[in-house]
Design a protein around this nucleic acid. Structure first.
Lengths: 249, 249
DNA sequence: CGTTACGTTGAAAGGGTTCAATCCCTGTGG
DNA sequence: CCACAGGGATTGAACCCTTTCAACGTAACG
C-alpha cells in the first residue's frame, strides 16, 4: 500500500512528464507552489468516468498514466469521440466558458490523474504569470488539435485516416520519451473507428491490409510499426512536421 | 471622410455588439479602459487578408462588420476551411501557444475589425480579472465549436450538413439581433462545400432540392428561410438547443 | 462584349457503409 | 479445468451516397 501511495503521490518535480505537462517552463519554486494545489487520488479503473457532461466544472485534470477518451452523444444517441488523451495531456479545459462540462471523459485503462482545482489555479496564476499563459497555451493547442482532426475528416480517405491516427499516436509516445515503434494501446478498434468517422468494419479491413503489407500490426492491444516511412507516406503527411499551413503551389 | 472615421471608430460603449463581443460583462469603467487599447483601422476589402499563416501573433481581432473565413492548406495544397466569423466574433486566438499564426484569415466582404493588441490586453487582464476569464471563455467556446464541426463531419450526411450550416448561420444572426429568416451571406457555395467536407456539385444539388421543397432559397448572396421547422428537422438538431451531450436512451 | 470564375446539371464510378454470419478472446461459474 | 456467454473483431457481398468528370450556363467586371 505504501509503494502504491508513493506511486501516485510523486510531485511535479519528480514527474517524468514535466516537459510535456502543465509545469513546463516553471522554476523550482513555482513548481512547488503548483504542487501544493495539485490533488492526486487513487487511479481510475477501466471505464470509470473522470467527469460527465453536465457536471459542474471545478478542476482541470492532468493525466499521469493511462488513457482517457473525451466524447459526447449526437442527438440521435450515437457516440462522438473527440479525442484520446495520454500522459502529460490536460483534459477538461473546454468547460471553462460554460462552467460545466459539456463532454464526457472516461478512462480506457487504469489511469492516474492529477487534479488541478481551477479556483486555486487561477489564483496562483495571478502570482505566477507564466502559469496563466500556460493555461492559454494548452487551450490554444486544443483548438489546433481540433482543426487537425477536421482536416483529417474532410480531406483524407479511410486508409490515410488510420495511418495518420497510428502515426500520431506513435509520435505522441515518442515525444514523451516512450517506445514508439512498439507500444501498448488500450483503445478499442471500435473507438478508433468512431473517432475517425469510419465503421469498425472499415478499420478492421484496413488494419488487415496494413498487416499484410508489413507496415503496421495492431493485434490485441499491441501496436508494432514495421515500416515507419511507409506509414508516414500513407498518412499523407508532409516530410517535415505535422502541420503545414502554407499553400503548396 | 469624417463620417467614415466615425463609422469605424465608435467605442465599445456605443457598439451594438457589446453583448456578443469581448466586453460582455464589463462595467462602464472597465469598458473604457478596454476601449483605450482597441485599435480601429480602415475596413478590410473583399479577399484582403487579416493575417496569414506564419505571421507573428500580436493581436486578437474582433469583427465589427462583415465576414472572415479562417483556413489553412493541406499537405496536398487543398484549402481547408475551419470557420466563418461574424460580427462580434473574435479571431486569432488559436495562435496563443505558438506565438505565430498557424492559420489564414481573410475577409469575404468589406469587413471592419477591432484590433486588440495582446500584450496590452494581457496587462489589462491582470487589473481586470473578468477580462482574462473572457479570453479563456472565448477560447473554450472555440474548442466547443470545433467539436460541433467534427460532429457534423462524422455523423451527418450532405443534406443534414447543409441544413445545419444554414440553420446555424441564421441562429448566429438571430442571436445578434439581425434578421435571421432573410439575410445576406457573402460566402461562396464553394467555400461552404469546403467547410462541410463536400463538393460544390453536391452543395448545388442540395440547395436546388431545398429550393424546390420551399425550405430555403439561397440565390446570389441572399438567403431566405421559408420553412424554419423543416430546416431544423433536416439538420437533425434536438428540439431545445444546439448541443446535446446527454445520451438519448 | 469578351473573359474569368462560379454555379449547375447529368451520367458514371467508387469508396465506404450496411447487413449478416462467423470467429475469437476474456471473464465467469459450475 | 472446461463450458458458456458476451462483447469485440473479422470477413463477404450488396448497396448507396457522394464524388468525379465533363459540359454547359451565368453572373460579375474590366
Amino acid at each position: 500500500m505504501t509503494e502504491m501511495k508513493t506511486a501516485f503521490n510523486a510531485s511535479c518535480l519528480n514527474c517524468g512528464l514535466q516537459k510535456i505537462c502543465f509545469p513546463t517552463g516553471l522554476d523550482k519554486d513555482e513548481m512547488d507552489r503548483l504542487d501544493a494545489i495539485v490533488q492526486r487520488k487513487a487511479p481510475l479503473q477501466k471505464n470509470q468516468a473522470l467527469f460527465s457532461a453536465g457536471d459542474k466544472f471545478s478542476s482541470l485534470y492532468a493525466i499521469r498514466a493511462g488513457v482517457v477518451k473525451v466524447f459526447s452523444f449526437s442527438d440521435s444517441g450515437e457516440e462522438i469521440i473527440h479525442g484520446f488523451y495520454l500522459p502529460g495531456d490536460v483534459v477538461g479545459i473546454d468547460a471553462l466558458s460554460s462552467k460545466k462540462h459539456l463532454f464526457n471523459a472516461t478512462a480506457l485503462d487504469v489511469t492516474s490523474i492529477c487534479t488541478l482545482p481551477f479556483e486555486e489555479l487561477s489564483e496562483l496564476s495571478t502570482k505566477i504569470p507564466h502559469l496563466s499563459s500556460q493555461v492559454l497555451s494548452i487551450m490554444s493547442k486544443e483548438v489546433v488539435e481540433g482543426r487537425l482532426h477536421s482536416e483529417l475528416l474532410t480531406k483524407k480517405n479511410a486508409d490515410q485516416r488510420i495511418a495518420q491516427f497510428i502515426w500520431s499516436m506513435a509520435d505522441r509516445y515518442r515525444s514523451r520519451g516512450y517506445h514508439y515503434l512498439e507500444f501498448r494501446l488500450s483503445i478499442l478498434h471500435r473507438d478508433v473507428a468512431t473517432y475517425l468517422g469510419l465503421t469498425p468494419e472499415t478499420v478492421s479491413r484496413i488494419l488487415a491490409k496494413l498487416h499484410n503489407d508489413k507496415i503496421v500490426t495492431w493485434k490485441k492491444k499491441e501496436v508494432s510499426i514495421h515500416n515507419e516511412a511507409a506509414l508516414r507516406g500513407l498518412a499523407g503527411l508532409a516530410e517535415s512536421d505535422l502541420i503545414s499551413c502554407y499553400k503548396v503551389v
